[in-house]
Amino acid sequence: MFSLVRSMWLIFLHMFHKRETFQYPEQKAPLPARWRGRIALTRDPDGGERCVGCYLCAAACPVDCISLQATEDEAGRRYPEFFRINFSRCIFCGFCEEACPTYAIQLLPDFEMAEYNRQNLVYEKKDLLINSEGKYPGYNYYNVAGIAIRGKDKGDAQQEEPPVDIKSLIP
């Protein structure tokens, strides 16, 4: 019983404490550099798009606000024909980043995206693609994947043997 009264008193004393609130937007809160706001699509070290259109982000999205269509260049490299996210539905949960197997989706500290017209919250690939490798410099999915693309033939990836010569019987 005493503790109740005591806590009431302590709370009462908070009347005279300094307030913690940031008066946003006049006063901006300092964000950590890796603060996770909206998504962006990053690029490979060779400048190509990292996104391979695997649809995992779309499947992971709890509000189903990502849609894309995968396509392929003539050399077999996959990329999204379009990549659309409806930020008016996005809940900034970051599941898409977790689901992304190629580090293409990364979260930027940008969250100030308010618009008067809701249509402007629909971001296409051109709005999302940034000219950076983001938090994973040097990573290239195709260097660990088995498929061949332009400039990386079978056996050229990390920890790959050269293609098997099926005509050879040598063990």
């Binding site: 999205c61 189903d64 606000c65 849609s67 659309r84 409806n86 629909v122």
Partner: peptide
């Protein structure tokens, strides 16, 4: 697991 319900047609109308 169907995905993209709220984005498939968002380019036409949000």
């Amino acid at each position: 697991r169907f995905s993209g319900r709220t984005a498939m047609q968002a380019n036409v109308n949000v």
